[in-house]
């Protein structure tokens, strides 16, 4: 996880996202170490796409990712919890049109 250049053996850590086929979203595949972004892409291909698992790959240095924390999970997602009117199930429609919708 360190990108300390003084440690000659330690290539920085990268996260790899692959798109299984066009039209699908990129998904996290795993991580790897590489000295720079070109090498990260090549290593990602050799490590995570040896069997056409991807038509496109994104790599990003792990240190650039900001993630929500499990401890905040409750309060962080709270705002969505009391808004059932954001879902179609909240609304009623005449029985006659129900089946067709």
């Amino acid at each position: 996880m360190s990108d300390n250049n003084s440690n000659k053996d330690n290539w920085p850590l990268w996260e790899v996202f692959t798109q299984p086929k066009s039209g699908k979203p990129h998904e996290h595949a795993g991580s790897l170490h590489a000295a720079d972004k070109e090498m990260a892409l090549q290593n990602a291909r050799d490590t995570y796409a040896r069997r056409n698992e991807g038509v496109s790959i994104w790599v990003v240095e792990s240190k650039h990712i900001t993630a929500s924390t499990p401890e905040d999970m409750g309060p962080f997602f709270d705002p969505a919890n009391d808004k059932p009117y954001r879902h179609p199930q909240f609304y009623s429609v005449p029985r006659a049109v129900k089946k067709r919708s």
Partner: peptide, 8 residues
């Protein structure tokens, strides 16, 4: 590994 780091 060292050379790759130096190049990067």
């Amino acid at each position: 590994r060292e050379a790759a780091n130096a190049y990067a």
